[in-house]
């Protein structure tokens, strides 16, 4: 499981940062500013590439805002493959990320994470992070049995 991501501030359009008040989530690491998106945030969100545009969307359904969607922020690739999201017209999306966060460990992500985008009953976009069983390395590093499905990368 990946409990958060971080994206270099320079990767996000200034308009998007201002519109969503993302500077509240800004942190400095090695003198460079980054925006952190954590699932434990009161209002968890993720950056998502949709139709060639970077957008900020709600991450999962942790507070039960939707009665239709699962109350989590992740879904297994296996669930998608077995048609678990078929009735919700879910579409695959990319979640850009520079770093992933899991149980206190920040690790490098070169491109991003695979995600799944759905609409809830209020027509709001909701994104779920796709995960797969951890590799041996990821399990040792984070002690987690689930890892995010990375784009063109395996750790």
């Amino acid at each position: 499981m990946c409990l958060g991501i971080s994206l270099a501030r320079t990767e996000l359009p200034l308009e998007l940062i201002a519109r969503h008040g993302l500077d509240r989530c800004a942190h400095a690491r090695g003198g460079e500013k980054e925006i952190q998106f954590l699932f434990r945030d009161r209002d968890p969100r993720l950056p998502v590439w949709q139709d060639g545009q970077l957008q900020i969307m709600r991450w999962g359904n942790s507070h039960g805002q939707s009665r239709l969607l699962p109350r989590t922020g992740w879904t297994w690739q296996e669930t998608i493959d077995s048609g678990g999201w078929k009735n919700l017209d879910a579409v695959p999306v990319d979640i850009p990320a520079s770093l992933g966060f899991e149980r206190g460990v920040w690790y490098r992500i070169r491109q991003g994470i695979r995600g799944l985008l759905v609409l809830d009953e209020q027509n709001s976009h909701v994104v779920y992070m796709i995960c797969e069983p951890s590799t041996h390395y990821y399990r040792v590093m984070t002690r987690s049995d689930r890892m995010p499905m990375l784009i063109d990368e395996q750790i």
């Binding site: 690491r29 206190g104 460990v105």
Partner: peptide, 11 residues
């Protein structure tokens, strides 16, 4: 990670 919470780990 306790000593350096902002550390980035690479394989």
């Amino acid at each position: 990670m306790k000593l350096c919470p902002g550390g980035i780990y690479i394989k």
